[in-house]
Design a protein around this nucleic acid. Structure first.
Length: 572
DNA sequence: GCCGTTTTCGGCCCGACTGTTTTCAGTCG
């Protein structure tokens, strides 16, 4: 069982307990546990293997009981508690409680009064008027339920960060253009630079809230208005993206920004800290009794709680609060630290721009070096190059290099890792390259052991420098292939291989959690765009965001090094 | 279910909006 499977089970338990009407804190403990397990830097199974249940109870939020339950799941593949709950409560109730306007209480009420336990049955009851008789189910709620069921069938749930950015920028411009705003910022998971976004939170400070709220719900792209209050509104855009607005006075802007940036888990943890200091924290400020002691800026708010300012990317309650209290937050890598891009393609294979065009674009970015990494021959669909074709390209590079003095073009390739872990090019041509990137592009469905052995074997090859997009995932489209990342990280460490954070907005591979895991193992990373067009070189910032979420400082990212030191690292 | 330089029991973050109510429960973030 992988961590997400265990998390899923805890999350299902929480849903069913909620319907059952269990004590809210017990429910919270399961939800909390789901989140903890989901974001663990190592598989729970290997923690159990190495340190037993004690290794799990070290984690704040996991006690004796939950540690034993994790063991039960690891050993049997399921959890008796969940099986029991499922026998008592039909699973359809969980789907019902996730409809807008329906929560655990109403789902249970529908089951108890009308024996409704599926979405289909609920839809029929709403249509034929049976819901009328149930307490609390007025005409509006019924209409909302029907709409929710219809939306459920065509729902676009999450959006990639880059995609959300494309929708939110014009929306913010529209708000700015029409009403006098003092400050405006997109908060939430967007500001934390999470790889995918459920909804967008726009925070505004303005002298008068009402005009901002009115303009917000009138945005032409708005499909549905979910809520329209004085200071808080919520809409769904035609794209399916939900956008929430919050308007606060300037004196509360920092507190509101802090609160609406989240994450929820981070907020709960810092508020708990505040309670111990006899303080109350809400979106309007930090209060001692009735007296506001902070609120205007985020830094003020955190200082009042006794914390230094924590970068949004770290606010996941994954140890950042403890690190902040001990003044050992990492100085996170920044876009301006990047001195070179180490994966890109040209018209020689599946890129759209020529070698000269890509080099010129990198020169304009002010890079010190770049690696041209066209595909090797196994990637037929991309027109992968053979030994002779690479040598031809290297001669072109040498020729071009003579005309370009202010940046170095590194000869390279994205060499395919074949099914058995051998490489798609011979050692002699690999030896003519400055840097060798290896990646998996085929046979994604291999069993976990086989895939792990395949990648580890490739990393053992003495000429390999970088593992490209290590898990092969495509966000929201394709799961990572089954692979033991702990073993891959260990192999990378043992053989001095760098792990790539691929900055393509639909890859962002490594994930934040894996990047952090690599960093903690002492493995160096690189952030590369894998650009197939000149414009895609701009994706570097998404990769840097991901590195920051993985706690990476400048020193953890090898392509922040000046060329001579980078070369020395490759040789080592 | 977790946790503890207040506690092994008794706490556990906080507020806005909606719909259906006549003062608030449920939902949501």
């Amino acid at each position: 069982m992988e961590n997400p499977d265990i998390a899923r089970i805890f999350s299902d338990v929480a849903d069913l307990l909620e319907i059952q009407g269990a004590v809210v804190f017990r429910i919270r403990a399961y939800r909390n546990a789901a989140r903890i397990v989901e974001t663990l830097p190592a598989p729970a199974e290997s923690i159990l293997r190495d340190k037993g249940e004690a290794g799990l109870t070290e984690l704040p939020g996991i006690g004796k009981d939950l540690a034993a339950k994790i063991r039960e799941i690891a050993e049997t593949g399921k959890l008796r508690l969940l099986e029991d709950l499922k026998r008592q409560l039909p699973e359809g109730l969980v789907q019902m409680m996730h409809l807008p306007g329906v929560g655990p209480k109403r789902a249970k009420l529908l089951f108890d009064t009308l024996e409704i336990d599926t979405l289909d049955e609920l839809e029929r009851s709403a249509r034929d008027g049976r819901l009328q008789g149930v307490k609390g189910f007025g005409p509006t709620l019924q209409a909302n339920i029907l709409k929710g069921i219809a939306d459920e069938k065509v729902r676009s749930t999450r959006h990639r960060l880059a995609e959300a950015e494309a929708y939110v920028k014009p929306f913010v411009e529209y708000l700015r253009a029409g009403t006098p705003l003092q400050q405006v910022e997109v908060a939430g998971s967007f500001r934390r630079r999470q790889e995918t976004i459920g909804d967008i939170d726009i925070l505004v400070s303005a002298a008068r809230a009402q005009p901002v709220a009115d303009r917000f719900v009138s945005y032409p792209e708005v499909k549905t208005v979910l809520a329209h209050g004085d200071t808080r509104c919520s809409v769904v855009l035609r794209s399916g993206l939900q956008v929430d607005l919050r308007v606060v006075p300037a004196a509360s802007y920092g507190a509101a920004l802090y609160y609406f940036t989240g994450s929820k888990a981070h907020n709960i943890a810092t508020r708990t800290l505040a309670v111990k200091k006899k303080l109350k924290v809400n979106e309007y400020g930090v209060f001692r009794g009735a007296k506001a002691i902070a609120g205007r800026t985020e830094a003020d708010v955190m200082q009042a709680i006794g914390l230094p300012w924590i970068p949004p990317e770290l606010r996941e309650n994954r140890g950042e609060i403890e690190a902040a209290r001990q003044q050992r937050l990492p100085a996170l890598v920044e876009l301006k630290d990047i001195r070179g891009d180490l994966q890109m393609h040209t018209t020689a294979t599946d890129g759209r721009a020529t070698l000269a065009e890509m080099v010129e674009a990198c020169r304009r970015k002010g890079y010190e070096y770049l690696a041209v990494t066209d595909h090797s021959k196994a990637v037929r669909v991309a027109g992968g190059l053979d030994k002779a074709a690479f040598r031809k390209q290297f001669r072109e590079i040498e020729k071009l290099q003579k005309t370009v003095t202010d940046l170095t073009i590194l000869k390279s390739a994205e060499v395919d890792i074949l099914e058995d872990g051998r490489l798609d090019l011979d050692d002699d041509v690999l030896g003519e390259m400055d840097v060798v990137v290896v990646s998996v592009h085929s046979k994604f469905a291999l069993p976990r052991e086989q895939m792990t052995a395949r990648i580890v074997r490739a990393l053992q090859h003495p000429r390999v420098h970088i593992l490209g997009h290590p898990t092969g995932r495509l966000l929201l489209r394709r799961d990572p292939y089954a692979v033991d990342m702990e073993a891959v990280v260990k192999a990378a460490r043992d053989h001095g291989v760098l792990l790539e954070i691929n900055a393509q907005p639909d890859r962002l591979d490594l994930s934040d959690v894996h990047a952090q895991m690599a960093r903690e193992a002492g493995v160096k990373l690189v952030v590369s765009t894998d650009a197939h067009r000149v414009e895609e070189l701009d994706a570097m910032r998404f990769g840097v965001d991901q590195a920051r979420r993985g706690w990476c400082a400048k020193a953890d990212v090898a392509n922040t090094l000046p060329l001579d030191r980078f070369r020395r690292l490759l040789r080592a």
